[in-house]
Write a protein that binds this DNA or RNA. Structure first.
Lengths: 193, 193, 193, 193
DNA sequence: CATGAATGAGGCTTCATTCAT
DNA sequence: AATGAATGAAGCCTCATTCAT
């Protein structure tokens, strides 16, 4: 009666989870967390409300899962870059450009993450994680700037991160019209040599 | 004939309006728009729920009123700076520093404004206004950079604005620990001379 | 300081009361009792909410006052007709025609009265009064039909009253298009001679 | 695969819908539309407030659904009578008697319908439907009176309809004491032969 | 006599979540 | 694993009424 192996079930589970998360991500990014109802997510994912609760214990956990996945993805991308045998400047540049590419190709993720940074009620659990990521990023920046011979490496790293986030912020606010690539090139040119 | 003069009523009205707006501002900034209930605003303002509707037709209009007032305040501050008889660099610096001061002293306003930029449902009416302010700000920046003799004034202005917003973003995310003043000094030193 | 005599005050009171009642009547008839707010009545009457409560103890009493006045007006009209020295048929006819004229000229009153007949919560106090009026009217009808020599005077009177009310009902539902006068003539012609 | 079949769900839905509509009908008829709260309907139907919104998008739609069902019921009853092979007078009589029976056995429906005719805010959508029914009814009456050989068939039909409605109106205002059957017999006897 | 700011109960509606099947 | 009917707390808003002046 049930010829399905454990692995098959697991595959089904993973597939369903992914469908739900994708639907939720798009809706959260588009309509905000509070503006998106579980019913809508379920409908968009072609799944019943009940099933959704089989995979996620609630709306909050669904959100956490999405964010966690997003962060993991970034992590992987950065790791690849850092493993390359390249100069400090090249690493800095590649990380910045990789980030810009991600913001561009995965706008929903980034809009969602940015929104969340300002929703205290939601962030109670997420904030520590994101702060940690941020610090990690800064430490990496400091190391790179030191390697590049900058005197005030720490302040440079902070400034670099702020500018990067500022550019992304502007881009996210006006994705159709912002000259993201040109700005990135202009910005990075200041650190060349 | 009437026991309370028109002026008296007007004073009372203005006072109540202000109390409600202040309470709402703090709560919106702290807990987000959707996370703040009318009941909570009323309680914080020591006022009944019903009274709130004597002054604002609903939660949305309350928000709009707050944002409008905030924008007007900024506008006034900038105007003062621009009227001074100072060099382009000094104007740029003073505007940046004035902005930083405002972010610091009026954190709630700024957190609210930034949050709003990412709440699509709320922004339908507010977005055009804020985009216009942003553009105005950028045009001013371009003019100043031109005056300072920069070749690529437009890109410089964009970058300057992005960095400023990025710094503020980081500060708002971690107000207790971020070295705002040092970062501003370090940032502005790059444009000196 | 106060040169106004008691009579003058009383005149003012009566005038204010009348203005308020007229405003309320029109609004009740147009938007229904529950659909009309005290605030709206006060505004339409160019009067403050507070003043309204000086004259009427509440919304219900305002309604009662309007209805009472309406009934008194009808009463007076009927009395005039009945005092005339005319035949039973003529009296019946004149009362019917006078009613039709009133329905036509004072549509709001009648719509309101008819509506009220079906609002149990409102009618608790009014119902006894209106039932009494109705019975009075029927007794009068019975007497007239007897005088006219009808065998089953009581049933005739009930039927006559029902038809009259039915015609008015139809007219009130479609005032612009209903041939009220023709219907009245056609209806009364059946009782002629 | 699914633990409850589509048919089972459908049965449950129909049952719940019916319970809610019945509760709402009785309350609307008894206390009026505005006088009946959603909470009360839910309590009377032994159902949560929320469930009501699974079936009806709001109070208005609930009302519309009830009215629509009521009208359909009448329609069916009349159709049966008209399909019979009987004389024009018999048809007129049977329709009148059937109506009287319906008014008697389904007093809530009729009280509700009559009330509604005078609530302008509610009727915006319903009025066109009800006017159409009324006209249909009148056209039928005209046809029957013509068949019966009356000269002024149209006026007769209008008068017949008005009297019928008038009788029902009186009955509805005083259901316990009004001699409905006697009045119907007396009224119809006038058209015999 | 007159005003309108202020109150608070009560109404409609939404939605995360549970649960029987 | 899957469904969707059912719940109930919580939110927004309206409005009759009161009251200080």
């Amino acid at each position: 009666m049930s010829p399905k192996s454990k692995e098959q079930f697991d595959q089904i589970r993973q597939a369903s989870r992914a469908v739900i998360m994708q639907a939720a991500l798009e809706l959260f990014a588009d309509k905000g967390f509070h503006g998106t109802s579980i019913a809508l997510i379920a409908k968009r994912a072609n799944v019943s409300k009940g099933l959704l609760y089989n995979y996620f214990s609630g709306k909050d956990e669904l959100l956490s899962a999405i964010v966690a996945e997003a962060l993991e993805g970034m992590e992987r991308d950065y790791a690849v870059i850092l493993q390359k045998d390249s100069s400090a400047y090249e690493k800095l540049r590649d990380i910045a450009l990789a980030s810009a590419r991600m913001v561009k190709t995965q706008l929903p993720y980034w809009k969602l993450l940015t929104t969340l940074a300002f929703k205290p009620d939601i962030m109670d659990k997420l904030k520590p994680i994101m702060v940690e990521k941020e610090l990690e990023f800064l430490r990496l920046g400091v190391a790179l700037f030191k390697e590049m011979g900058y005197e005030e490496a720490e302040q440079e790293a902070y400034l670099f991160g702020a500018t990067l986030d500022g550019i992304f912020l502007h881009y996210m606010n006006f994705p159709e019209g912002y000259p993201l690539d040109e700005m990135m090139a202009f910005f990075l040119s200041k650190y060349e040599r």
